[in-house]
């Protein structure tokens, strides 16, 4: 794998990567298929999807509505199952995991950011950020201390006591990002994180995600906005459940 990478790089097919991008594979999908059963019919959403995301990369997945982006992301996040193919997360095969194992991966390995924020409405910002730590069995005091530092990192230290309903969309998404980061995951999966935000706020969110990536965390952003996608290292295009080949060229620099 590393040999292939250096070869491609020498040929100019790949950019001289930023130092945070390593040669280690973080996500590797081969021939992933997924279909939904709707009554008698089966809707083939993902068709032979091959995907390779290296540790420390920041990639975007683009595609029109219904092209299977969320489905793909949910499979990456072990929220959903795939029908056939292989999925390696950090070189570990992810296949028919027990609910408990899956929960453990989601808790410690993966951070989710959603378009609709998905904060718990009756919990304040700090409590929301602390939720993943609760499922790790971290004590309340320690949880709150860690959560406070992550809220501070997204610039919302003063909003710790506020309920989601008292915050703007951008603030909510920053809380969600803090929550995704609090368990120190290796991968952040963001499904249209800026879909509900105006462009200025969207850029702020992307700024934060870039900083997250620079700290060494692999970031996968699903979006259908070009300006958002262009801020990532690499765009993966989905069309009718297939990965469009022929555009591995990075958009940045």
């Amino acid at each position: 794998m590393n040999a292939l990478y250096s070869m491609l790089m020498e040929q100019g097919a790949l950019p001289p990567c930023r130092c945070t991008v390593s040669f280690v594979s973080m996500i590797r999908l081969t021939k992933i298929n997924k279909s939904y059963r709707i009554g008698q019919h089966a809707l083939h959403v993902l068709r032979d999807v091959d995907l390779h995301i290296k540790a420390g990369e920041m990639v975007s997945i683009m595609g029109s509505s219904g092209s299977g982006k969320s489905t793909l992301l949910n499979i990456l996040g072990i929220l959903d199952q795939y029908d056939s193919g292989d999925y390696y997360l950090d070189e570990t095969p992810i296949r028919a995991l027990s609910e408990r194992k899956a929960a453990m991966y989601r808790n410690r390995f993966i951070g989710f950011v959603f378009q609709s924020f998905n904060l718990l409405p009756f919990k304040n910002a700090l409590e929301n950020v602390a939720v993943p730590l609760y499922y790790q069995g971290v004590s309340r005091r320690k949880r709150n201390r860690i959560a406070t530092s992550y809220l501070d990192r997204v610039g919302l230290a003063d909003w710790a006591e506020h309920l989601p309903s008292e915050m703007s969309g951008g603030q909510k998404q920053r809380v969600a990002i803090a929550r995704a980061l609090v368990a120190r995951p290796r991968v952040i999966l963001a499904d249209e994180p800026t879909g509900a935000l105006d462009s200025e706020t969207s850029y702020q969110i992307m700024q934060i995600l870039e900083e997250v990536n620079q700290s060494g965390i692999t970031v996968v952003v699903v979006t259908h906005e070009h300006d958002i996608a262009e801020r990532t290292h690499r765009i993966i295009r989905l069309h009718d459940g297939r990965v469009q080949t022929g555009d591995p060229v990075p958009v940045r620099q």
């Binding site: 996040g77 929220l79 989601r106 808790n107 998905n118 718990l120 939720v131 499922y135 790790q136 368990a183």
Partner: peptide, 16 residues
Amino acid sequence: TKEIGIRKAMGATPFS
């Protein structure tokens, strides 16, 4: 349901 979904995404086990 939604809350449970969110919690599961955050790593809640079925047992918890």
